[in-house]
Write a protein that binds this DNA or RNA. Structure first.
Ligand SMILES: [Mn+2]
Ligand SMILES: [Mn+2]
Ligand SMILES: [Mn+2]
Ligand SMILES: [Mn+2]
Lengths: 218, 218
DNA sequence: ATATTTTGTTAGGTTAATCTAACTTTATAT
DNA sequence: ATATAAAGTTAGATTAACCTAACAAAATAT
């Protein structure tokens, strides 16, 4: 059985090499930064994970998950997102509070618990941030989506997911009047730096490109 | 913040020195046995817990929890029993399955989670094994109770709690037709070894004294 | 009162996960 | 093509939690 630490490495690698991250291989420094450890630490762990056949890795080479590693990573993501959904739907947590607690809950080992939890939540397909929840087989719904920053001026779109899960970002999103399913109209865009003027529920706001890069819409 | 290991030592000491255990101090070997570690290991940890002012301990002396240690131990017990109740009430776990998973869940750190969970469960006072759940202040309902082995022949009583929480014991209890609130009539007792003949829902069974010692009745 | 058993402690090691400091390899820029 | 910078690795330490083996103290039994 994997330790919590090993699980965190697999999950980090999964995110660093997922579609979302537009590349399929990661580096030691990048991985270390994600996990808030020093590169030397990540390097040690990579050797261990390679030994366990969970990552593809050669000295000075790029890193990727093996099929086995990916399967395990997806299972952790599944648990994380089911717990977030539980906290949000059943315990009245707000969407900026769920992530931190789910970081702990995702490491509970009990297949039965997850099966039962999923059933209790009525087999949800998306978590409170709009991210797809993998099913027991590791399959997840892929939605066509673009970032708000890619939307044409004058168009209206619907918020379906957020990329950043940090409490500070999510609180900012709420402050602008946004939540999942909100309708957003793009009023104008500054060519200089991509700053957008948007309208949500009749309320206008000016937001940075960085902000818009972190919102997924259809 | 306490590590999972430290929490487990506090919890073990709490049980070893509670009313239930008819003594208020514990020994190193006893503690080590409870936690499935060697006495040398427990000894190291005792020094650490003393340093943190969580236990009263002197070389070759008896061990007890300080007020601070006891408060923390009760909080872990509270979490454990709330999670057991959640698993039993909401996720359809059976009473022999809940303990093992709760052993993991009790170490999740989030005061808000526990508050919300308690509210979601409607402030339960007893867990699936009939054990009292401490409230947020650490107070718990104390019920007058005796063990089935202490009951007089001919009397009928009600099962309100089980002492042993192991799956094997609980499955045995179910096999005899018992659950919380079951009515039990004591038909006869062997003076030689305390073996009892009991009747539950019209069904007669013969059980050992050890078995009867682990059932609390009123 | 002394011998034996039980209980508790110490010394010295191991493993997982982390670190710093020094080093090597690969990538980038002139 | 070489120098510099960035990325990655290694060696050697540290800490928490565990171990075994040897020893010391306390409890008990004769
Ligand atoms: Mn999350
Ligand atoms: Mn999420
Ligand atoms: Mn339990
Ligand atoms: Mn219980």
């Amino acid at each position: 059985m994997l330790s919590q630490t090993e699980e965190n490495y697999l999950k980090a690698l999964f995110y660093l090499t997922s579609e979302n991250a537009d590349k399929s291989e990661a580096g030691t420094n990048e991985l270390a930064a994600t996990l808030n450890v020093k590169p030397a630490t990540a390097n040690d762990m990579l050797k261990k994970l390679k030994e366990k056949k969970l990552v593809n890795y050669e000295r000075y080479g790029k890193i990727s998950l093996t099929n086995s590693g990916k399967k395990q990573a997806i299972d952790i993501v599944r648990k994380h997102r089911l717990w977030e959904t539980f906290l949000y739907e059943k315990l009245e947590f707000t969407w900026d509070e769920v992530h931190e607690v789910a970081e702990q809950l995702e490491h509970i080992h009990s297949p039965k618990l997850i099966e039962k939890l999923e059933k209790f939540l009525n087999y949800p397909e998306f978590d409170p941030h709009g991210d797809a929840i993998p099913n027991a087989k590791g399959e997840l719904k892929v939605q066509a989506r673009k970032t708000l920053s890619e939307m044409a001026v004058g168009k209206t779109c619907k918020l379906i997911a957020v990329k950043d899960n940090s409490a500070s970002f999510l609180q900012y999103v709420m402050k602008v009047g946004l939540g999942l399913s909100s309708k957003i109209k793009v009023i104008s865009r500054q060519d200089f730096d991509g700053t957008l003027e948007i309208e949500v529920n009749g309320k206008k706001s000016v937001v940075s490109q960085k902000f818009a890069d972190n919102l997924f819409v259809v």
